[in-house]
Structures are given as structure tokens and as C-alpha cells.
Design a protein around this nucleic acid. Structure first.
Length: 149
DNA sequence: GCCAACGTTGGC
DNA sequence: GCCAACGTTGGC
């Protein structure tokens, strides 16, 4: 089992939405490096749910991946802002996964930066990458950190 | 293929 | 709200 950090914009889809919906499709990723990571995610993997454009950026939840990667439906929908006319059903360009809410945690970006993810090259150097893998040690530290909840 | 212009992201 | 960093676009 692997674990990953994924980002969403709090304005668009927040941890509150996810807790209410229980499951969601994490769609709309349109970056090739991110897509390559998505294709490596497997059902049963662990996901940490991060809010960036927030007043208090940080990790807000733990989720379980409940599907293998599959073509992101929004790429085929002309009404979607994620529509990609260069993609086709036969040869889809973008992929997504389905995740299920497990529980809330809160780890502020300061703690991630100064401690838990300070050796994570993706977190530290690729601010705009919306999904990347976490090591076992990082995963353990994140799970151990949730004492105050 | 280069690179300036542009739009978006992320942290403060 | 600001702005640096950075990914993408489009003209050449």
C-alpha cells in the first residue's frame, strides 16, 4: 500500500464537502506529471487531503482510495471547464481516482514544511504539483501527528 | 525550438 | 490583497 498527498482548492471542494459526500471523484487534474502519479495509484492506497488556497493551508483529512485509476469523465464533457477536445474515449488523456473519507486530521503547512515533509522534494520544490507520493516514514509521522483530534 | 506574455497557484 | 514562482500558450 502506498500513500499520497492530493490537493484541492477549499473554495471548490472542501473537507466539509467530502465528509458529507463520503466519496468523491478527484477530477480535473490537467498536468502530465500529476497524471503519471495518478496512474500509479491503486485501490486501497492512503490519501492525505490537502487544502492550499485556504486561510490556513495544510492537511485536513485522511482518505482511502476506492478505485483504480480510470479516465476522468470531465475531459469528455463539452460543458465542463475541464473539457479537453484533444482527448478521446478510445485514447483518453486524463485520469482520476475515487476516494472515500476516513477521518479528519489537521496538520498545518508550517509543520509539514519544517518537520514532516521537509525532505520531500515534491512538496518542497514543486509547489504547484497537485499529487505526489509520500514515504512510509512521512505517512507514519502524519498519522501519529493527529493526537490533538 | 525559443521565449515573452499571460494566467494561476500558494503562502503570507 | 499582494506578489513571486512557475506552467502553459502562442507568435515567430
Amino acid at each position: 500500500m502506498n500513500s499520497w498527498l492530493i490537493k484541492t482548492d477549499e473554495q471548490e471542494y472542501s473537507i466539509d464537502d467530502l465528509e458529507k459526500d463520503r466519496t468523491t471523484i478527484w477530477d480535473g487534474v490537467r498536468n502530465h506529471q500529476a497524471k503519471n502519479f495518478i496512474k500509479q495509484i491503486r485501490k486501497g492506497d492512503l490519501v492525505f487531503f490537502y487544502h492550499s488556497k485556504s486561510r490556513n493551508p495544510g492537511i485536513y483529512g485522511v482518505c482511502k482510495v476506492v478505485s483504480d485509476p480510470f479516465p476522468d469523465p470531465t475531459q469528455f464533457d463539452p460543458k465542463s471547464k475541464y473539457f479537453d477536445k484533444g482527448s478521446s474515449l478510445r485514447n483518453p488523456r486524463w485520469f482520476t481516482i475515487k476516494i472515500r473519507f476516513v477521518r479528519r486530521i489537521y496538520v498545518p503547512v508550517k509543520v509539514l514544511k519544517e518537520k514532516i515533509l521537509r525532505d520531500n522534494k515534491y512538496f518542497m520544490t514543486q509547489k504547484r504539483l497537485t499529487v505526489f507520493p509520500l514515504s512510509e516514514i512521512e505517512t507514519k509521522m502524519l498519522l501519529d501527528n493527529e493526537t490533538h483530534h
